[in-house]
Amino acid sequence: MTEHVVDVAGLSRRFGQKVALDEVSFVASAGRIYGLVGANGAGKTTLIKHLLGLLRAKSGSVRVFGRDPVRDPVGVLRRVGYLSEERELPEWMRIDELMRYTQAYHPSWDMGYADDLLDTFNLDRAKKVKELSKGMRAQTGLVAAVAHRPDLLILDEPSTGLDAVVRKDILDAIIRTVADDGRTVIFSSHLLEEVERMSDHVTMIHNGRVALEGSVESIRDAHQRSSVTFAERLDEAPKIDGALSTEGGGRSWSVVHNGSIERFRQSVAQLGGEVVQSRDATLEEIFIARVGRGRLSAEAE
C-alpha cells in the first residue's frame, strides 16, 4: 500500500487543564475528501493545527507526506494549501500583491489558474485585503490556498458565516482539487449536509476523542432512525437497546440507534412497542444523537 498523505497516531494535547485531543488517530490517503465534524471546541482546529505544524505534537506522532511538519516545515507547507476559519491574510496587502507574495513560496504556483479564479470571483486586484467583505476575503484566501495546486488542501470551517454563492465557490474548489488530479482535501464544517455530500470519509470528534469515523455510507448504514409506537403513553423516554437518542412523547417516539436491528426490535417489543418505520439516519441526526444533550449513553457502543 502506498504511503498515507496524513498519518496521525496517538496524538494527545492539553491546554492547561483542558484536554483538547486525547489519543487521536487519523489517516488520510490520496484522492479522497475527509470531513471533520464536531461541536465547537471539540478539537477539530487543534487537530488541523497539528497537521500544519502550528502545534507541536506533545505525545503521539504527526506525519504529513511522511514528514514531520515541525521539523520540516518547508517540505510540508509547500505542498499544502490552507484556509483558516478566520481567513487570516495580511491586511495591508493588495490582492495582486498577495498572489505574487504567495507565489514566491510555492514553485508550483499556477498564475493562470489564480487569474481564472480571481476573474470568476470578480475580485478587484488593486483592492487591499482590509477593504474586502467577508465573502471576498474568503474567496481571496481560497485562491491563495489552491493556486499552487496543493497535494493536500486543508480548510478549517470554510463555510462558516458565508453566503450561498461563496460557499458554492469553496465546494467547487474542493471538488476540482480532488477530481482533477487526485489530490487530498481535509475540511472541517458545522454544516453536516455539506459534509455528507462532500466527504468520502467522516471523522467525528467529541471532547478531544474520535467518537466515530468511517465512510459516509458505513456510518449511515450503522445508524438507523426509527419511529416507534407504544401501546400506552410513556411519561419518560423508553430505554431501548442500542438507542443513542430518543425524542418524542406520549405513544410515539423517534429513536436514533445503532448496532443490531433485530436486538432493537426485540427491545422495543419487550417494552410493549412496535417499530413503525426505519431508515438510515442522516449525519446530522447521528451527530446530534452522539454529541447533543439528547443522547443517552453514548459510551455504550
Binding site: 475528501i33 458554492k168 465546494l171 467547487d172 471538488i175 480532488v178 477530481a179 455530500r197 462532500m198 468520502d200
Partner: peptide
C-alpha cells in the same frame, strides 16, 4: 463526466 456531475451536484467525485 465525473467532474462535471460532481460540480453540478456538489458531491464528492468519488460518489
Amino acid at each position: 463526466p465525473i467532474r462535471t456531475l460532481a460540480l453540478q451536484l456538489k458531491v464528492t467525485p468519488n460518489t
